[in-house]
Amino acid sequence: MSMEFTDYHVRLAAYVLLVDEVDGQERVLLAWWNGEGHSDPEWSLPGGGIDFDESISDGLVREVFEETGYHVAPGALLADDHFTARGRTFDGWFRSQRFVFEATITGGELGTTEVDGSTDHAAWVPLAELEGQPRSHIVDVALAAWKAKK
């Protein structure tokens, strides 16, 4: 299907991939997306939709704090991905353009700060335990880019 850019809506989203090592075990910071009543819950990367009047960097910092309680300094672009679908809240098609950045935690403490949002909690999940867990495709995109860069 081919459409001009004026024929569809666009949703910009930015996420971080934070991986560390504790006691010789690599783990990734993930946010538990609750499905918002229309999908099954699953792990996702911390981040989300960029508001109309904010930069991608500012939106990323805001979203990560809301979902994890951590303040971050965004780093380099690690990966990008997109998908298209029909809108749930409007009639028509949309393109979800997603960017994944490296980042550094600069403060805060683990704990979801948003109230009645799409994220129920965040956790450091060992990579060895991630297999078989319900997770968003963006998690796999980010981890593949991270592994390729190592």
Score class of each variant (00 low, 15 high):
34 N>Y: 00
51 D>Q: 13
35 G>E: 04
61 V>E: 13
48 G>P: 01
54 E>V: 14
34 N>W: 03
54 E>D: 10
73 A>Q: 14
66 E>K: 15
51 D>K: 12
40 D>L: 15
46 P>D: 06
38 H>L: 09
28 V>S: 05
52 F>H: 12
48 G>W: 07
41 P>D: 03
78 L>A: 02
62 R>D: 10
78 L>Q: 06
32 W>M: 09
60 L>H: 10
70 Y>R: 11
77 L>K: 12
42 E>Y: 01
30 L>D: 00
37 G>W: 05
29 L>W: 05
66 E>C: 09
74 P>Q: 08
28 V>Q: 01
27 R>L: 08
73 A>R: 14
39 S>R: 15
70 Y>I: 03
71 H>Y: 03
67 E>R: 06
32 W>H: 08
74 P>T: 09
44 S>V: 08
72 V>M: 07
41 P>S: 09
41 P>T: 08
49 G>P: 00
42 E>R: 13
65 F>R: 15
53 D>S: 13
30 L>P: 01
26 E>S: 09
64 V>G: 02
52 F>S: 07
45 L>I: 07
55 S>D: 09
38 H>T: 10
49 G>S: 12
70 Y>V: 06
38 H>Q: 12
27 R>I: 05
66 E>S: 13
38 H>S: 10
59 G>A: 11
68 T>F: 02
71 H>M: 12
56 I>Q: 05
42 E>N: 06
33 W>M: 08
39 S>L: 15
41 P>I: 13
51 D>M: 07
53 D>G: 05
41 P>G: 01
47 G>T: 04
75 G>V: 03
74 P>F: 02
41 P>N: 03
42 E>G: 02
65 F>A: 06
69 G>D: 08
74 P>K: 08
54 E>P: 03
38 H>Y: 15
52 F>D: 13
56 I>P: 02
31 A>E: 03
67 E>I: 02
42 E>Q: 12
48 G>K: 08
33 W>R: 09
26 E>H: 13
57 S>A: 15
34 N>E: 04
39 S>E: 15
40 D>S: 15
51 D>L: 10
51 D>H: 06
72 V>P: 01
40 D>A: 15
60 L>Q: 06
30 L>F: 09
76 A>L: 11
33 W>E: 04
40 D>Y: 07
53 D>T: 12
51 D>R: 08
